[in-house]
C-alpha cells in the first residue's frame, strides 16, 4: 500500500481543484476498468464488471480532495488572503508551510510571534478567515504576481516514512481511501459489478457525493476513509475512538449516517473469518461522503471502513503500515465476497 499512498498523496488537489488527482487515477485505471467516466463536479466513476450483477448498484467510494485553501486576493502587505475548505483547525495551520497546488511557490501561514507579544498575546486563536499566506512578497504587486486568486493552496509536507512503520505527509489522511480504491481496481475481480467512485468536493459539504448519488442511485454504499485516532497524550483514553496499531476501523455511525447493521456485521464476520484485525470506531462526530451517498437518491444500505490516522486535517497526518494493510485486506474481501 505504501507506493499507492505515496503517489496519490503527493498529487495536489484541494476541494474543487481535483483535476490532477482525477486525471492521474483515470489514466492508471483505464486498462483495468470496464468504463471510466467523470462529471462537471470532477467526480470520477470507475465501473468494473463482476462475475454477477447486483439488483441495485454497489458503490465503493473514497474522496479525492485534500485539506487546504483556495487563494483569494493579495493584501496590501503582499500576503495572500485565503478561503479554507471544511474541517480545518486554525491551531493546526498557523506557522505551517504551504505551497501553491501544482507549483513551486511556497509560503507560511502568518502568525504573530510570541517574541513580540509575550505569552499573554497567544491566548486567542484567530479565525480561519483572518489567516493569510506569506509568500515572501514585498507588496500587493508581488503577492499578485506570486499567486493568482482561485489557485489551490496545499500543505507542503511531502510523504515520508518514519519511526516504527509509520507514514506521514500531506494528504495521507485525505487520500488513504483513494489509494485503497486504486489498488482494488488494479488487482481485484469483483464478485458483483462495482462502481468505484472517487468523489470531489467532499470537504465542501460533500457536494460531489450528492451528485454521485444521483448519477448512480446506489443500493449499497461502502466508504473507505481515514478514521481520526485520539490515542495521543492530550486525550483521555475514553475519547480515543480508535487506536493506531489495532487494525482497520469499522464505524457504527457518523455525522450523516447510521451504518446498516446487517452490512456492518457482515464486514466484521468476514474480517474475523480471514484473520483481518478490525476495531470498532466509537467516535461518531466525523462526517464523510456516506451521508450523502446513501440518502440523496433512492436510498442505500451503507457502511464505512477505514484506518486510524492521528492528526487528521493537519499537514502531517500519520498512519501505520499494518493498519493500512488490514484496511486493504478488508476492502478486498468486501469486493470479492459481498
Amino acid at each position: 500500500m505504501k507506493e499507492y499512498l505515496k503517489v496519490l498523496s503527493s498529487l495536489d488537489g484541494v476541494s474543487g481543484r481535483e483535476d490532477r488527482v482525477r486525471d492521474f487515477i483515470a489514466d492508471r485505471v483505464r486498462p483495468h476498468a470496464t468504463t471510466v467516466e467523470t462529471d462537471v463536479l470532477k467526480n470520477l466513476f470507475v465501473w468494473k464488471k463482476g462475475k454477477g450483477t447486483p439488483d441495485r448498484p454497489i458503490v465503493v467510494a473514497a474522496a479525492m480532495d485534500e485539506w487546504g485553501f483556495v487563494a483569494e486576493e493579495a493584501k496590501d502587505s503582499g500576503a495572500i488572503a485565503l478561503s479554507a475548505v471544511d474541517g480545518m483547525d486554525p491551531k493546526a495551520v498557523i506557522g505551517k508551510r504551504f505551497r501553491v497546488a501544482g507549483g513551486e511557490t511556497r509560503g507560511v501561514i502568518s502568525v504573530v510571534s510570541q517574541h513580540l507579544t509575550g505569552k499573554t498575546g497567544t491566548d486567542k486563536v484567530p479565525e480561519l478567515r483572518e489567516l493569510a499566506l506569506d509568500v515572501g512578497a514585498k507588496n500587493k504587486e508581488g503577492g499578485k504576481a506570486a499567486v493568482k486568486p482561485g489557485e489551490g493552496i496545499v500543505y507542503d509536507y511531502p510523504f515520508a516514512e518514519f519511526g516504527d512503520g509509520f507514514y506521514r505527509g500531506k494528504a495521507v489522511d485525505a487520500r488513504l481511501g483513494a489509494s485503497v480504491l486504486l489498488r482494488l481496481i488494479e488487482e481485484v475481480s469483483p464478485a458483483l459489478d462495482t462502481w468505484f467512485v472517487f468523489t470531489a468536493s467532499s470537504k465542501i459539504e460533500h457536494r460531489g457525493g450528492v451528485v454521485a448519488a444521483r448519477r448512480i442511485d446506489p443500493g449499497t454504499v461502502l466508504t473507505v476513509e481515514a478514521a481520526a485516532a485520539g490515542d495521543v497524550p492530550l486525550q483521555k483514553p475514553a475519547l480515543w475512538s480508535v487506536r493506531v496499531g489495532e487494525g482497520a476501523t469499522l464505524g457504527l455511525k457518523e455525522f450523516g449516517s447510521v451504518y446498516t447493521r446487517e452490512l456492518r456485521e457482515r464486514l466484521a464476520r468476514i474480517a474475523a473469518k480471514n484473520g483481518v484485525k478490525v476495531q470498532i470506531r466509537s467516535g461518531m462526530r466525523g462526517s464523510g461522503d456516506a451521508g450523502t451517498l446513501h440518502t440523496r437518491a433512492s436510498g442505500a444500505k451503507v457502511a464505512g471502513i477505514g484506518a486510524p490516522v492521528r492528526y487528521v486535517g493537519t499537514g502531517n497526518p500519520i498512519v501505520h503500515r499494518d493498519d493500512l494493510e488490514a484496511l486493504w485486506q478488508l476492502a478486498k474481501l468486501f469486493v470479492e465476497e459481498v
Binding site: G256, S257, V258, H294, T295, R296, A297, S298, G299
Partner: peptide, 13 residues
Amino acid sequence: EVGTRGARAAAYH
C-alpha cells in the same frame, strides 16, 4: 430523528 433521511430517499424514488 437523525435528519429525515428515510423520507428524503422515499421522495426521490
